[in-house]
């Protein structure tokens, strides 16, 4: 069953096409990633899908309901963590959680239990009496994510939910989301942190200039677009311009660069098994010594950059 069905969706602001004729679907229990550079149209897409702004054209069904006709029903079954901060500055964490649960008509006893569990889960229990305005940015973000789980929902929209979180809090939040997905929740997720997308998403849509460029699993995206592997090595001698010149001339090598911070060389190649023996031969010939060498798999970031750059080109 598809939880989100989008056909030919567009959102224009005057001449500017924030979203330009996009189509995709998201299955129940799926984590669907929406990746794109700044201004690609991710947040606009979320605003349309959450009924906050009307589309210019196209058909959208959320949880089986027409976006234009059943907006209120849709909103009653979704949760949204916006990209921008949202909080009530004049009240404490605990009161703000309670009020948010009340807004969603969560019964008092259920609310109390969930608030306690979520405050602990998101590391906010110690600051529950602190005013929202006095929290750090990361704490406010955790509060914003945590309170969304006070109410029941079938579909959760997360617009860069981990911005401002430290790595421990980020991992804890992602693991919590994974657990929710196991329980049947569907998640529509945007992020700039590609490791996060790879960790969480079943499928990813890459969007740029308002258009979807490709949709696939993270593994397939890496296979299709992250073709080059990186052979990373260091020399006992530090650096050698002769070696760089020789490697550059090899047919199997597309690029060689040295990392200024640690002096390591990175060779981009689709045939590391050919390049490595040749590299050793060249080093021996130039009387150089390779102190470490390994093959780095292509990352989702490599694939993402290639996809976006191909569209620009």
């Amino acid at each position: 069953m598809n939880v989100i069905e989008v056909e030919g969706l567009s959102k224009h602001y005057g001449d500017k096409k924030a979203i330009d004729d996009i189509s995709f679907s998201v299955k129940k229990g799926e984590v669907f990633g929406f990746l794109g550079p700044n201004g690609a149209g991710k947040t606009t897409a979320i605003k349309v899908l959450t009924t906050l702004i009307p589309p210019t054209s196209g058909n959208v069904r959320i949880l089986g309901h027409d976006l234009r006709k059943d907006a209120k029903h849709i909103r009653s079954r979704i949760g949204v963590v916006q990209q921008q901060e949202s909080f009530d500055p004049g009240i404490s964490v605990e009161v703000s959680m309670n009020l948010y649960g009340l807004l969603w008509d969560v019964p008092k006893d259920v609310r109390a239990k969930r608030i306690e569990a979520l405050l602990k889960q998101f590391g906010l229990y110690e600051v529950k009496k602190t005013g929202d305005a006095d929290l750090s940015m990361g704490q406010r973000r955790r509060l914003q994510v945590a309170r969304e789980f006070l109410h029941d929902m079938d579909l959760l929209f997360l617009d860069e939910p981990t911005v401002g979180l430290d790595s421990l809090a980020r991992r804890a939040a992602l693991d919590f989301l994974k657990e929710k997905v196991k329980q049947g929740m569907t998640i529509f997720f945007t992020t700039h942190i590609l490791e996060e997308a790879e960790y969480l998403c079943d499928r990813i849509a890459v969007i740029n200039y308002g258009k979807i460029i490709t949709i696939d699993t993270p593994q397939n995206l890496k296979r299709k677009f992250g073709q080059s592997k990186s052979v990373d090595f260091t020399l006992l001698e530090g650096s050698s311009s002769d070696l760089v010149r020789s490697v550059e001339h090899l047919d199997e090598v597309s690029k060689i660069a040295q990392d200024a911070s640690d002096g390591a060389y990175h060779i981009m190649t689709s045939k590391p098994e050919v390049v490595i023996p040749m590299l050793y031969q060249l080093a021996e010939k130039l009387n150089l010594h390779i102190s470490s060498i390994y093959i780095a798999e292509p990352t989702l970031e490599d694939a993402f950059i290639k996809i976006v750059q191909e569209v620009k080109a």
């Binding site: 906050l52 916006q82 949202s86 004049g90 807004l103």
Partner: peptide, 18 residues
């Protein structure tokens, strides 16, 4: 103003309210 400035305006409109 408070709700718009602190993002609660949008948050409430994305909830079960008109």
């Amino acid at each position: 103003w408070f709700d718009r400035r602190h993002g609660m305006f949008e948050q409430i409109l994305m909830g079960p309210f008109t």
